[in-house]
Design a protein around this nucleic acid. Structure first.
Lengths: 227, 227
DNA sequence: CGACCGCTGATTGTCGACCGTCGACCGCCT
DNA sequence: AGGCGGTCGACGGTCGACAATCAGCGGTCG
């Protein structure tokens, strides 16, 4: 993100990648939609090779599924896959959190500030902004641990979850106040508790997230098989 | 690995990717070596596009660094980066382990079997086989948790570490018996302990690994600042 | 009437060529 | 002699064309 050289030489594939990524994450392309190289290339004014490279990148991000010799589609995750990704994200965040000093860690002020903004945003009903704040909140924790690689992995998973959350909250307009409250709870535990307490409430927090996504019916077909 | 469709349609880029990956992981290419597209293409009998795609894939695996408009090189990790990757691997494995039932989990037999083979291998002094067994050992734990996404992330990190371990153990021919003993210790804790005990010994296990790599001088930390 | 089989269109796979850019080298100016 | 600007070679970036392959469709045969 803060790599100074990445602003210069933002290559064509990188730009295409970012554009397609943005559209997928904003649900301008819905899950399962076909992404055909040639039309995208013409639409974006580049050649197929360029689009192709961007699609491969999106594939490794888990945002696009590529069927060999067939066509690419926006990833549609099963309930199982969503749970797995969510759990992996939780595990990484817990791994970051256990490195922090609790109670007197200055990070708590930053977290509180984000939660305050969440409360304000919840009142306004801006779903997209809320999800961005969620990412910002957890990023604080991840970044504070100073583990760059771990943070990178987390960010990939978070982006995917963000896309799902967008589409889930879009469908049922509840939970913004609830979300703000949940995060406040996390901060409170951070203030007075230990790493163990924190991990526990974090896990509940994540489970709540995947549950609300499940109930929102984001997972179209596989939802029926939920235990 | 177990994807049935992956045997069919093993495309050219995939094959090239696997071949280059194998060479990097076996240290047939040393860290920092330049990987120029055109010569590689000719050597492998494919076009530059194909090699290019394989290099991108290796890049996202963290095995190759790509400098825009310049050339690609085999990744040379700093001490910090190694520690980060190692820690992330540990976090993921701990996240898998906490889902297991301890003491009576049937996995322990499989783990013990691997350790037994380790002991035999240590006597023979086969470094490469030992590293493969290490991967197999930890894979048992990861796979037993049944979290596919988490396992995939772990595997990527493990492959990188494997490359480093190969080159570190190559340089100092000690530690094979020591490695076997360490893993036996992990199994013992698994037998009688709880998830918390296990995570603790696992962390020591990982720290020991990164330390021995550090001492082996894999990370030319001084060389990093040298022209 | 249904199942099978080959045609066909759509889409990706692969390639070689041309273009732009970067760093290295060299000669000139101070 | 040292710094600087220009030139050159090397390499990645981008492209359009051609080949391979798959799914769906329509015709045909049992």
């Amino acid at each position: 993100m803060s790599d100074p050289a990445s602003f210069l030489h933002r290559s064509l594939p990188e730009a295409v990648y970012l554009e397609l990524r943005r559209k997928i994450l904003n649900n301008e392309y819905e899950a399962g939609q076909r992404l055909v190289e040639a039309p995208l290339a013409e639409e974006l004014g580049v050649s197929r090779s360029t689009v192709r490279e961007a699609l491969r990148q999106l594939n490794t991000d888990g945002l696009v599924d590529i069927s060999p010799r067939r066509h690419s589609v926006v990833t549609r995750m099963s309930y199982e896959e969503i749970r797995d990704a969510c759990y992996a994200r939780f595990v990484l965040e817990a791994g970051a959190a256990r490195l922090l000093t609790f109670q007197k860690d200055p990070i708590v002020d930053r977290l509180q500030a984000v939660v305050d903004r969440m409360a304000a945003t919840a009142a306004g009903g801006d779903v997209a902004a809320m999800i961005d704040l969620d990412t910002e909140f957890h990023s604080c924790i991840i970044d504070a641990a100073g583990k760059h690689r771990l943070a990178a992995l987390w960010r990939t998973l978070d982006a995917q979850m963000g896309a799902l959350m967008r589409s889930s909250i879009d469908r049922q307009h509840i939970g913004l106040d609830e979300a703000a409250r949940r995060h406040q709870q996390v901060v409170d535990v951070f203030r007075v508790g230990t790493a163990e307490d924190f991990v526990q409430i974090l896990e509940e927090h994540y489970l709540g997230t995947v549950d609300s996504m499940a109930q929102a019916g984001v997972l179209d077909s596989a939802a029926a098989f939920k235990p």
